[in-house]
Design a protein around this nucleic acid. Sequence first.
DNA 1: TTTGATCTCCGCCTTAAGGCGGAGACGGAA
DNA 2: TTCCGTCTCCGCCTTAAGGCGGAGATCAAA
Lengths: 217, 217
Amino acid sequence: MDNRIRVLIVDDHEMVRMGLSAYLSTEDEIDVVGEASNGKEGVEMALALRPHVILMDLVMDEMNGIEATKLITESFSKMSWDSKIIILTSFIEEDKVMPALDAGAFSYLLKTSKAEDIVRAIKKAREGESTLEGKVGQVMLANSRKKTAKHETLTEREMEVLKEIGKGKTNKEIAETLFIGVKTVKTHVSNVLSKLELEDRTKVAVYANKHHLTDDM
Amino acid sequence: MDNRIRVLIVDDHEMVRMGLSAYLSTEDEIDVVGEASNGKEGVEMALALRPHVILMDLVMDEMNGIEATKLITESFSKMSWDSKIIILTSFIEEDKVMPALDAGAFSYLLKTSKAEDIVRAIKKAREGESTLEGKVGQVMLANSRKKTAKHETLTEREMEVLKEIGKGKTNKEIAETLFIGVKTVKTHVSNVLSKLELEDRTKVAVYANKHHLTDDM
DNA sequence: TTTGATCTCCGCCTTAAGGCGGAGACGGAA
DNA sequence: TTCCGTCTCCGCCTTAAGGCGGAGATCAAA
């Protein structure tokens, strides 16, 4: 049995797979045993190939990286095998760091990482040491504080009002769409403002749009 | 003078650059003359190298692909030179297709494209034929109805005010960040409202966020 | 030079927004 | 039953927002 690190690449961007496998092939200790172009394929190949390390993209159609990670770790835990999964992603998707780690990811790297950093992360992963790159540490800290998104505390009605504000409606317009009085809308708005710790409806509108709480678009 | 196609790659993902340049180098007719890791660098290298074709990623820090595209086409139009810019992006960012084409992009490809498709698009671009992949055709149809975005008519200052409203700021806060009086802010806000045909700042905030005019995030 | 666009600021006025406090109705949990 | 959360609505009050009209300064184009 030779002790090269068996690596599986899961990414729907052909050029990313190409780049990675081209570079990793130049490394003596690394052996790219497979490439998958979506999460579903990734899970199948992981189970079949049992790689030591899996480089996993997050955003993919068919099945995303988080689901795939979850499936792989669950399956392997039942068969006493352990593939280290390294999440590879763009900086834009950093809000998915925590879910990914929860799903069983071992390391986290940004796609902007230099090739040698990726190699290092693969070797470290093989040795049982995880790598968390980028603002991940900060993000983890920030998220541990937040825990629950503030709008989770809103009542059903308050959430409806929030959504309407997110569409840019006035109290009068909201009153009409929800078939209630303007005074009532005002009450809900006040509650929303205090629960979200915001000062005015404009900030609420921004909040709603940032958190994609407008149900349209 | 040899007639190989001079290509510049602009992408902040090292592995994408690696993959592309590795593959394109195997093509006789193509010559990768440079790689840039962000929009700013991309603009500089474009001006310096005058490539025939530029492969441009959209999402980058420092300067995104749209701004870079705009700068490059503007600069080149003044010096009667013409680089064809091919936007390369993930399917998630398809809402940025139109802004990219408006900015002067020539073709549009998804990163999931096969390597040979990219080569084909490069050759076509050199011959003056653009390639629009994915749902782009449909998106263009849908958007062509819209005409010009209303916010194009805003002055520079009004646009700044618009952005601040998009962050949820009050007139007082905007006045402070822009170092002008509240009265002046009000004037700008009034102009923004009438130009965008909106009734209040909340709708402006929604508009700004929908059109990704907040420059943060 | 004249003109037009832009940015800056003023006063006056009306109204929507939002805080504060109170309250009745209803339904589920203790 | 009592209690609590939620939804509904009221009045009173203060302030931010926004419309309307006017105006001076600057700068570039005609």
